[in-house]
Design a protein around this nucleic acid. Structure first.
Length: 286
DNA sequence: GATTCGTGGTT
DNA sequence: TAACCAAGAAT
């Protein structure tokens, strides 16, 4: 793993996408919003929602002043709408506990609702140019291939992985921050999960997976991700009705969104934990 | 540590 | 076409 860093930094300099949250003028809030939206959602779908979000709520205090339901509505169809609730809660916490300024320490960031290890490290690195180990699915895949020689990393982050990432991280904080985003970008654009573009990879000559003949993944199969007919889909349908309605709706409107009454009612109840509120005999976003 | 939390593009 | 996957977090 001796010299992955320089070639990847050079590659990034030449090939990085121009994303709004990466521009020098982007605020830490813009970075934080992008990280919430990018949790399990592709960049192309995040772009328009992120832009509208920052136009409407340029600072944490602007969002914190709104009802949480407005965040859920503006979230649109990005998926996992509880992220919208958590982002709203994070904005409130930033105003309450941090003077309205997105905190710059890993620990303070990690304490915000919806901010786990990845997001805390990413915001500290990308918004504040700190030296942080940023381990997302892209970085894990790139290092897994380039260093460990495996097609896909383990289910959860191992100590060995973290050790490799720490060892590679440049000592100089701004360079480390650029390195972190550069490895992620390489994973997103070249060292992709399927059909990786190895001929265009800046480290193809030192890649352990390449040297081993690109052996196929032989670990435990990942659980199947079904969606059609699940409670998750049902909840999505119910929430879509509420997002698209200006105010509250009758239960009839929700009933029309899903055929199976038993499943529909179960899902509605599960949404009442914060994503939906009952208003008399009607339902609305919070 | 395994499960659960949406949605749509791609192949 | 059905399967896979996309800058994770909370429980």
């Amino acid at each position: 793993m001796s010299n992955l860093v320089d070639p990847i930094l050079r590659w990034y300099d030449a090939h990085a996408r121009d994303l709004p949250w990466r521009r020098p003028t982007a605020s830490a809030w813009s970075v934080l919003v992008s990280e919430f939206m990018l949790q399990q959602t592709p960049v192309s779908r995040v772009l328009p929602v992120h832009e509208a979000w920052l136009d409407r709520w340029p600072a944490p205090a602007d969002l914190a002043a709104e009802a949480s339901g407005e965040a859920v509505r503006a979230w649109g169809r990005l998926g996992y709408p509880r992220r919208a609730l958590r982002l709203h809660a994070a904005a409130v916490a930033i105003v309450t506990d941090h003077g309205g300024v997105v905190p710059d320490s890993y620990d303070a960031l990690r304490g915000l609702p919806g901010v786990g290890d990845y997001t805390a490290a990413a915001v500290a690195a990308f918004a504040y140019r700190q030296r942080q180990v940023v381990l997302d699915t892209n970085v894990r895949r790139v290092l897994g291939r380039a260093v460990a020689g495996v097609e896909f990393p383990a289910r959860s982050v191992t100590k060995a992985e973290r050790g490799v990432a720490e060892a590679l991280l440049p000592a100089d904080p701004p360079t480390a921050a650029t390195w972190s985003v550069a490895v992620m970008e390489l994973g997103a654009l070249v060292c992709t999960a399927d059909r990786p573009k190895c001929p265009f990879c800046p480290v193809v000559e030192t890649c352990a997976w390449q040297a081993a003949g690109r052996p196929a993944y032989d670990g435990p199969p990942r659980p199947l991700q079904t969606y059609a007919g699940t409670d998750r889909q049902c909840r999505g349908r119910l929430l879509a009705v509420l997002r698209d309605a200006p105010g509250s709706v009758t239960k009839d409107r929700l009933d029309a969104a899903w055929d199976l009454a038993e499943q529909r009612d179960r899902c509605l109840v599960s949404l009442l934990d914060g994503l939906v509120v009952a208003v008399g005999d009607r339902y609305a976003l919070p």
